[in-house]
Design a binder for these strands. Structure first.
Lengths: 243, 243
DNA sequence: GACATTGTTGCATCATTTGCAACACAGTTG
DNA sequence: CAACTGTGTTGCAAATGATGCAACAATGTC
């Protein structure tokens, strides 16, 4: 059973790449025309591919409706929950999880440091994208269009002296974030708080980010940076669990 | 080859319905556990399904990335083009095609009545959702959330005496549109113009609408209504071509 | 109008998938 | 704690389903 399904999946991928004819696909997969024809007919009957008037096959609509549900079922908090707690056990700091939900970034989970100061941040609260570690970690992984959408309502309020206050400056920083794979918030939202964030990247792109936070006087940014490897691994584990 | 693929598709649909275990699926499809296990492993290896920690399978992320492309490839104007011209040949009136593109409704094609008056409406122009036949035909097919999104920027300008000028009044009319399957624009945008519109509905939901337009003095609304069966059939043909 | 190319179907062969049995592992119960 | 129940997982021989072929249909091309 695996062979048929595997090949069907590869055929669908080929069609996703660009619409193809029966002959092209038969040649690509080294199959007889008749075989490929039957395969495509089967895929068409379940709505996975669709035959255009010109004879080429493209992806079918049923795939889209499936994906909508797959996306709705995507449970970032659920997938992350245990890993965040494990990370917290390692680093000790408050750990935040943020998700990108339709152009806005929202905190969806956090693990407080019981011994430390409780910080003001609540689950469900929207994140200021340009003034937070998770915001920057997520923005750095988006293409221009998506980045524009997230920043559409940006007011560029200067919360602190370090707050990024222009799109140009932000874009410059995001380039760096993309390169290094993590983002810092160096007193950019609150004067006494630092944080480091890493994106959670699935085959779909960035779906969220996680961060660790510290009071500046207790731990400086360089101390937090030593935690980056652990954070990256946590992010990878969460991504794997998602998909 | 068809049988394996067909069943795989049905299994995926079952999982889309809600996450399932190997045993449940084996029972549903009357297969041995081992067989279903192997099937799911194959589907997992290509990213179509994903095994959660609790052992249940849910849809995989690869499906979502496929769907994104499928959706991008969706070519409403291309699929509609010939059918619109055929319809124009039958009814004679100016035919418009509108698409719902990310919360806004846009004219994407039209067939002018060469003998009639050229009407002011251009391809690419955004439609006023509450003051047009195609707008109402589309809105009627959307759920509350999507309807809210489309109407987010609505100004409720009264273009004519008949223009709908409140959400409540619109919602009332849309109920009727949903019931009857078509929408009218009875001098609601321009005093001298009437139109009838029908939605184009795919398995994904409403993706657009088409309309026929007439100068009120030349053809009244009742005359236009006689064209509804032809329009509905055209919409069905277009939807079929899309999917 | 003949030719070339691709689409489409029936059929016998062949390969893949299937169910079984057996083992592994976890959670549960007496 | 040990036996048990339910599920996950793998090897193997039987059986079902997929494959290529050939032949025909349909379409476009020279």
């Amino acid at each position: 059973m695996s062979q048929s399904v595997l090949r069907a999946a590869r055929i669908i991928d080929a069609i996703a790449d660009e619409p193809r004819t029966v002959m092209e696909l038969a040649a690509t997969f080294d199959l007889h025309r008749s075989t490929m024809f039957r395969e495509l007919r089967a895929l068409e009957s379940v709505g996975y591919v669709h035959r255009r008037k010109d004879g080429r096959y493209r992806l079918g609509l049923h795939l889209v409706s499936l994906a909508r549900r797959a996306f709705d079922d995507l449970d970032l908090p659920g997938a992350a929950r245990d890993h965040l707690r494990t990370l917290h056990g390692i680093v000790g700091n408050t750990v935040h999880l943020a998700a990108l939900v339709e152009d806005i970034i929202v905190y969806v989970d956090k693990v407080e440091d019981p011994s430390g100061v409780r910080m003001y941040s609540s689950i469900g609260k929207a994140v200021v994208p340009y003034a937070s570690g998770v915001g920057k970690a997520i923005l750095a992984g988006l293409d221009v269009g998506a980045r524009d959408a997230v920043l559409a309502g940006a007011t560029w309020v200067k919360f602190t002296e370090n707050t990024i206050s222009s799109r140009a400056e932000l874009d410059r920083q995001l380039d760096l974030v993309t390169q290094q794979g993590w983002a810092a918030d160096d007193r950019e939202f609150e004067d006494f708080i630092n944080c480091i964030a890493v994106p959670i990247v699935t085959p779909l792109g960035v779906v969220g980010a996680l961060s660790i936070t510290a009071i500046r006087m207790v731990q400086d940014l360089d101390t937090l940076k030593t935690r980056i490897p652990a954070m990256l691994q946590t992010a990878t584990l969460i991504a794997r669990e998602l998909g």
